[in-house]
């Protein structure tokens, strides 16, 4: 793992711990708001996308029938990862908050702590790797 990859991988959990630390600031403070909003909007999702990334990439994406721009598919994949980071974060916030409120264990600090722990765990876990695509079988008699 390169230092750059390490930084990218540790950024979401760092954001979570930073948001937790920002709770010490007075309510309504812009710094506190920014730290919390940025982490909740993308942190957990980014960590989950990082964790599942290699396994997700095993399945190629469907694209337009006629392809002229060689970068188009790569940019679509990037957009997809961004979208998943945001939407999975939204899902994580909604699901964790619902579970805590349904079990009458709700507090905002618990929601943030649970999400930060989930993000940290996802960042430290080894990446999920799907099975590599099956290599085409050599036709009978085609081997040299």
């Amino acid at each position: 793992m390169t230092p750059q990859e390490l930084v990218v991988r540790m950024l979401p959990p760092f954001g979570g711990w930073l948001a937790l630390a920002a709770l010490a600031l007075p309510g309504g403070s812009p710094v506190r708001g920014a730290a919390v909003a940025v982490f909740l909007a993308a942190g957990p999702g980014a960590a989950l996308v990082g964790l599942c990334g290699p396994a997700l990439r095993v399945r190629p994406a469907r694209g337009p029938v006629e392809r002229r721009d060689p970068d188009f598919a790569r940019r679509s994949d990037l957009l997809e990862r961004l979208m998943l980071a945001v939407l999975l974060s939204t899902c994580a916030v909604m699901t964790v908050a619902t579970v805590l409120i349904a079990t009458r264990a709700f507090s905002a600090q618990r929601v943030l702590l649970a999400l930060t722990l989930l993000t940290t765990l996802a960042a430290f876990c080894p990446r999920l790797r799907g099975a590599s695509p099956p290599t085409p079988r050599t036709q009978k008699g085609s081997a040299p």
Partner: peptide, 22 residues
């Protein structure tokens, strides 16, 4: 169907604002 409201309840407290109306 509490998903959205539970998340907003957490957000209100985490931002430290009086209510979601803010």
């Amino acid at each position: 169907w509490p998903g959205f409201f539970a998340a907003q309840a957490a957000l209100v407290r985490l931002l430290g604002v009086e209510s979601a109306a803010m």
